[in-house]
């Protein structure tokens, strides 16, 4: 009898938790999240509102550019095949649009770390003249003038449209973009094993790359100068321009190596089209450059075959489940129901 009560209690308790629990598919071997969910508790309605905002060009000045314009779900939310991204009026930005995944583990955002919190990230493209060219006030006014959004914010946040709620909704959607179902992840979980080539590539990776592109997120989240000569047409000094500290000059955020098949071209300015070019760069760095980040001061030597093996390993970090995930795509069902409501 006692047992039955305990079981009943557990079932009730579990279903109570389940009703609001959002399954993010986070593997055990991932570190603890940086994003503090206790300050913005996940809730499906909020996630869906964030998803709608992500896909809505209303965030841009002339209602033509949405977040998804430069971050497409099919490409791990990168802007594939664009070295630099374009915003309203075909204005060209300064940097390569990074892919969006595992953002809840990120300590800072943008290639230069100028953004200190996931919540605040969206304000950068919204206000940048080369991206969405809007203003924070402009967006909030537009959303408040929209009957649909007014209703949605009222339902979801019990309030009018405010910057805080807009940003927190977007964060909720962005936090759900977890990429953890690559071949690498299956290998770590013991579901399958690497072939000889991939295994060899993995060993090379651990020897030469893991210091900065640390497993399992494949980035430390830190910043490094990797010896790339400055592009004089952009004159981008990265983190140094933000902190004004000399040692930060030319440092850029270490990107994750997950989903590389979708995120070309590579580097902060998209200067390399192929992974092979990236690897060739790292093996050809002049290690005497003083400002070079420490781990790169030891020359990386790879044979031609080893480079092929390394690429074979890197491709095991592609997450096709992630790029195909319907929950991340254009919210057709939400927009359709909105249309019905407005009619």
């Amino acid at each position: 009898m006692k047992k039955a009560f305990i079981i009943l209690f557990c079932i009730v308790f579990y279903s109570f938790c389940l009703s609001d629990l959002i399954n993010l598919d986070i593997p055990d071997y991932f570190p603890e999240m940086t994003y503090d969910l206790s300050k913005n508790e996940l809730n499906d309605a909020k996630i869906q509102l964030g998803r709608k905002l992500f896909y809505d060009p209303i965030l841009s000045k002339d209602n033509t550019i949405s977040c998804a314009s430069c971050h497409t779900s099919y490409n791990a939310f990168a802007h594939t095949d664009h070295d630099l991204s374009h915003g309203i009026n075909d204005a060209i930005g300064l940097r390569n649009a990074p892919p969006l995944f595992n953002l809840a583990w990120s300590k800072s955002f943008n290639w230069d770390g100028a953004i200190n919190h996931l919540d605040m990230q969206a304000l950068a493209p919204i206000n940048d003249v080369n991206e969405m060219g809007e203003s924070t006030v402009g967006v909030i006014n537009k959303l408040n003038a929209d009957e649909n959004y007014r209703q949605l914010f009222k339902q979801v946040w019990k309030d009018t449209v405010t910057t805080e709620y807009m940003l927190k909704s977007l964060s909720q959607f962005l936090v759900t973009l977890v990429s953890s179902q690559s071949k690498y992840d299956a290998m770590i979980e013991g579901q399958l094993s690497y072939n000889v080539q991939e295994q060899n590539g993995y060993q090379l990776f651990k020897k030469h790359c893991n210091d900065c592109h640390t497993e399992p997120l494949f980035t430390t989240g830190g910043f490094a100068y990797n010896g790339l000569p400055i592009d004089s047409t952009l004159n981008d000094f990265g983190k140094g321009a933000i902190t004004l500290i000399k040692q930060d000059s030319l440092k850029f955020k270490i990107p994750s190596l997950r989903n590389l098949s979708f995120t070309y071209p590579y580097m902060h300015d998209g200067r390399f089209q192929k992974l092979r070019q990236v690897i060739d760069h790292y093996t050809a760095i002049d290690t005497k450059i003083e400002a070079l980040s420490e781990p790169l001061k030891k020359q990386i030597v790879l044979t031609s075959n080893e480079k092929v093996d390394l690429v074979a390993f890197l491709l095991t970090l592609d997450d096709h489940e992630f790029t195909k995930n319907k929950n991340h795509q254009y919210p057709r069902e939400i927009l359709n129901s909105n249309l019905k409501q407005t009619n």
Partner: peptide, 24 residues
């Protein structure tokens, strides 16, 4: 407060007292 994420009221970025290109 500067690194505390999205805030409302007097700290709402809508007041034009927030840098969006470099947070703070």
């Amino acid at each position: 407060t500067n690194v505390g994420g999205a805030l409302g009221g007097d700290l709402d970025p809508i007041h034009g007292m927030y840098w969006t290109w470099q947070n703070g």
